[in-house]
Design a binder for these strands. Structure first.
Length: 551
RNA sequence: GCGCCCGUAGCUCAAUGGAUAGAGCAUCAGACUUCGGAUCUGAGGGUUGGGGGUUCGAGUCCCUCCGGGCGCGCCA
């Protein structure tokens, strides 16, 4: 279609009908309203400025020069200048053949050409369980990673562990654990003011007591704190790994912040920043000149007590990622971190790395609802709802799907009651049901001796019902949808698309019987139904949601 | 005060600068002697927060105002 339009423009130009100097970027898209045909192009409008003529007139000229094509059955110029193409249904039959031939690979691209992308997400501190908020970041990151792989990138999923032993948080965390441990021993001690009130610490303390005995809190304070810190952190990390695995996320790399400190990489990054002239001494501290790269103020790299700050470690971390050979870095952060985007980008730029290859995606908050009621959460009070709570309540599939029903930059209301419902109100069931229903049809067909025939050898031209054509068009959109979702960093588009496919299928099912006495119609519909199954399986696969054969 | 995100149907949200702004839920009215009714059909419902601008065309881009969320540490 694009090629046809290009030829038409070229011919019109040569004929002197359209004196254009520069070829416009020609795009073709399915129109909103199906009466306008199968594909539409807005080239004529794009040329109005240069040609100073109304778009309809330009469109008419283009159409006059449009070469004949056996696939195109009708070309019309709309009143506003759109050029609308109606195609012979044959092109849709090619879509089915394409799907059947490619199978799992239908929807995949190679635009990434094997370039390496590091997607860093979740990165929860090792001082508490994975929460629902992390769950959202997890779903976004994991599915974005799937999408990038699908379009041809080589992706590494990475979790940054904020395990710097000297951080205040980890110190408070360790102290709180010591208190819980002593309480279990019957001592009358209370949590410090900045302590962690969560029940999970009691569980860890109990575990510690059982496995290591009751003498762990003896000895000088620093030794005790460090002992408990190391134990708690390890236990926490294992639990996080398990929770995420149960959520369907397996990281390739768990990167330790502490290793940057102990390995000298933080110090090295600081030296490099100094050498490049982007670090300076002031008030006894060392500052990063982040304002040189658009930040509102400069940031402290090394405190006046000699301790490096978080941003120093982050500079070293991103430098490390580029040094590991990644072409692109994508960080996925929670809403409370958006203030750190500018300074982190500044650090990357100051170190001389291509900042345009470093993206940060900020997702917005998650509010949990139970029926109509908001579930209140507060980390300080220790009543955080964990990802595990949600998984136990609604299951992995519903959880992942729900986290991806909204754009990442829109707040998300997660209704636990709805996610649990086994009815059409629940979109994840709606989509899975479509898949199970297809499998059921194929089973029944199989029992009657039918198999899905090779599409290339099947007469598909009997597929003429409106619902059949609509379904095929929807299946045709899949590869484009994958590409857009990946490049726009919009994994949530997949949930919507999956619902549209399910919708188109259910409408087809309602009007068209697959297995019938009509041999050629049955064969053609088996191809269509199986192609739908493949697309549903592929899109659910990208979402990390199972495609059940029975429900 | 400054920065980021958001404001679209009763509710929750979609919509590479394109045509008559779409879904789901909710509400109301309908449809199975059939391969899975966890389904389908239909109806009502809108000044896209207000006002300016950019252009062939703006929910989308720019300015401004209003409203909401979050962040503004030598914490991570």
């Amino acid at each position: 279609m694009v090629a046809l339009l290009e030829q038409a423009l070229q011919k019109a130009k040569e004929a002197g009908d359209l004196p254009i100097t520069q070829m416009p970027e020609i795009t073709v898209e399915p129109p909103r309203v199906k009466e306008f045909g199968d594909f539409a192009s807005n080239v004529a409008m794009l040329l109005t400025r240069e040609l100073k003529k109304p778009p309809q007139q330009i469109a008419a000229t283009i159409v006059k020069h449009l070469p004949e094509d056996p696939l195109v059955s009708k070309v019309e110029v709309a009143g506003n200048g759109f050029i609308n193409f109606t195609l012979h249904p044959d092109w849709l039959y090619d879509v089915l053949r394409d799907i059947q031939q490619k199978g799992d690979a239908y929807g995949r691209w190679n635009v990434g050409q094997g370039k390496r992308v590091n997607v860093e997400f979740v990165s929860a501190n090792p001082n508490g369980p994975i929460t629902v908020a992390h769950g959202r970041g997890g779903a976004i990151g994991d599915v974005l990673a799937n999408l990038l792989e699908a379009v041809g990138y080589q992706v590494t999923r990475e979790f940054y562990v904020n395990d710097a032993t000297n951080s205040l948080q980890m110190q408070h965390f360790a102290r709180s654990l010591v208190v819980r441990y002593r309480q279990l021993l019957g001592e009358d001690v209370e949590l410090p003011e900045d302590g962690y009130a969560g029940e999970y610490l009691v569980d860890i303390a109990r575990d510690l007591l059982e496995k290591e005995g009751k003498h762990l809190a003896e000895g000088d304070e620093d030794t005790v704190i460090e002992r408990f810190r190391a134990y708690a952190e390890d236990a926490m990390k294992r639990q996080q790994q398990q929770d995420l695995a149960d959520f369907g996320i397996v990281f390739d790399v768990w990167f330790s912040e502490n290793s940057l400190h102990t390995g000298g990489q933080v110090a090295q990054a600081i030296e490099e920043l100094k050498a490049r002239g982007y670090a300076y001494e002031h008030d006894g501290a060392l500052w990063l000149r982040s304002t040189a790269f658009g930040d509102d103020k400069d940031r402290v790299l090394v405190r006046n007590n000699g301790q490096p700050t978080y941003i120093a470690a982050d500079a070293a971390y991103h430098k490390n990622k580029f040094e590991r050979g990644f072409d692109y870095l994508i960080d996925i952060w929670g809403p409370d971190h958006h203030g750190y985007v500018a300074r982190t980008k500044a650090a990357v730029a100051a170190l001389g790395y291509p900042v345009e290859n470093f993206e940060v995606l900020i997702y917005q908050i998650v509010r949990l609802f139970k029926g109509g009621d908001l579930v209140r959460m507060s980390k300080r009070a220790g009543n955080v709802v964990t990802l595990r709570d949600v998984l136990e309540e609604v299951g992995k599939d519903a959880a992942r799907f729900f986290f991806l029903m909204r754009s990442h930059d829109s707040p998300l209301d997660f209704d636990l009651e709805l996610a649990k419902k086994e009815s059409s109100e629940n979109p994840v069931y709606y989509v899975q049901y479509a898949h199970a229903r297809i499998c059921s049809i194929l089973r029944v067909a199989g029992e009657q001796g039918w198999t899905v025939p090779a599409a290339a050898e099947t007469d598909l031209s009997v597929l003429r019902e409106e619902q059949e054509l609509a379904l095929m068009k929807k299946l045709d959109e899949f590869p484009e949808e994958v590409l857009t979702s990946a490049t726009e960093r919009a994994p949530h588009r997949l949930t919507r698309y999956s619902m549209e496919v399910a919708d188109a299928f259910h409408k087809f099912y309602d009007t068209c019987r697959v297995v019938s006495d009509d041999r050629s119609l049955t064969q053609a519909r088996l191809v269509l139904v199986d192609a739908t199954r493949i697309v549903l399986k592929n899109v659910l696969g990208l979402l990390g949601v199972t495609a059940p054969e029975r429900m």
